[in-house]
């Protein structure tokens, strides 16, 4: 039986079974698009605001 998906799942490409050297040589445009999206997300203002520590620190950041 297939499990129900988690709602609001982000789309993350899975390269975990690829060898790193093969991945580095891979020129698949779809993979390039996935990586561009990931990098854009990591550079987004929200991600950079929340970057770094999150515990007992900077009241301005995404701490607990």
């Amino acid at each position: 039986m297939t499990e129900q998906p988690v709602p609001d799942h982000l789309d993350v490409v899975d390269v975990s079974t690829q060898g790193l050297s093969r991945l580095l040589r891979d020129e698949d445009p779809e993979l390039a698009r996935w990586i561009e999206e990931l990098v854009a997300t990591l550079k987004s203002p929200r991600e950079t605001t929340l970057a770094g520590w999150n515990s007992f620190l900077d009241p301005g950041a995404g701490s607990n």
Partner: peptide, 19 residues
Amino acid sequence: MEQLSRPWSRLQLTRSEFG
């Protein structure tokens, strides 16, 4: 010539793992 893409799987948590 434009290179064709191949299917890529997604890395996901299952609902039971999430739970």
